[in-house]
Design a protein around this nucleic acid. Structure first.
Lengths: 138, 138
DNA sequence: CGTTTGACTTAGACAATGTCCATTGTAGGA
DNA sequence: TCCTACAATGGACATTGTCTAAGTCAAACG
């Protein structure tokens, strides 16, 4: 689990208590927290950590490619530590639950040249929407 | 072009100058304006229109299925009047330009049961990212 | 046509999310 | 241990969106 901390230190990232806490909070599969949620959990471990620091640190982790920004709903950005396996997202339209998914096929290949308008297309982002077992059962 | 206005009136929508202006602003292909941009253009035609009315009207158009909400960037929601032909979006990572695109294939079929976590999946949203001709040339 | 009525509009306060900056603190090297 | 550049802090500010109370108007009715 300190994989992340090791990698960061190896990249010359200056290690501080605050950064360690943020990195610890963002750990695991199917983790998609908002900045505020990250802050709340960080405060539980390190009460004096500030909002600005959480935002800064998240921004840096995104720049370093260690964490992905996800915008599945129109509210807050979410942060996804699963940056090293490419994946897409499945979102419950009712409760907002999010799962990482790995579809087969390559959507990039499905966009004909005539539909590219001269763009250099480099990336695709796919969001599946539906109801999770809980919400569908109700 | 008054297709939209006709349809709305037919549905018992009370027609006001403000609503007409908003509907007129949202007209055309590849139109993806933020609420603020809609407001700015509406004010040009009807100076006393208020922000709240623009938000209300956009929300109603979305509820009626006449306009789609698009969240390609993490900033503001955008409103897409092209609601009657299903499509996806191609976004310039630099300048934010957006084009409507129609990929071949069906991403829904590419999500195996084992990757559905018991969800009832009903919809997919695909966002291609890259550089538009202008930004790539620079 | 004039009245009437309830839906629509308005302005501005408020809320949620995110950014910026000047000041203070500290990790890690010499 | 001391220095210094980099990081953290807190609070002001910005952007986007929501809500409410009061005024206004579209359209149905006579």
């Amino acid at each position: 689990m300190s994989d992340l901390l090791e990698r960061l230190r190896g990249r010359g990232w200056r290690m501080t208590a605050q950064r360690r806490v943020v990195a610890e909070v963002l750990n695991g599969e199917h983790v998609h927290l908002t900045a505020d949620e990250v802050h709340a959990r960080a405060v539980a471990k390190l009460p004096e950590i500030s909002r600005a620091t959480v935002y800064n640190t998240l921004g840096e982790l995104v720049s370093l490619g260690e964490v992905l920004e996800v915008t599945t709903d129109k509210r807050a950005k979410r942060y996804d530590p699963n940056a090293h396996r490419p994946h897409h997202h499945l979102v419950c339209a009712r409760c907002g639950a999010i799962r990482d998914v790995h579809p087969t096929g390559n959507p990039l290949a499905d966009l004909p040249d005539t539909e590219r308008f001269g763009f250099t297309v480099s990336d695709v982002e796919v969001t599946y929407r539906g109801l999770c077992p809980n919400c569908a059962g109700a």
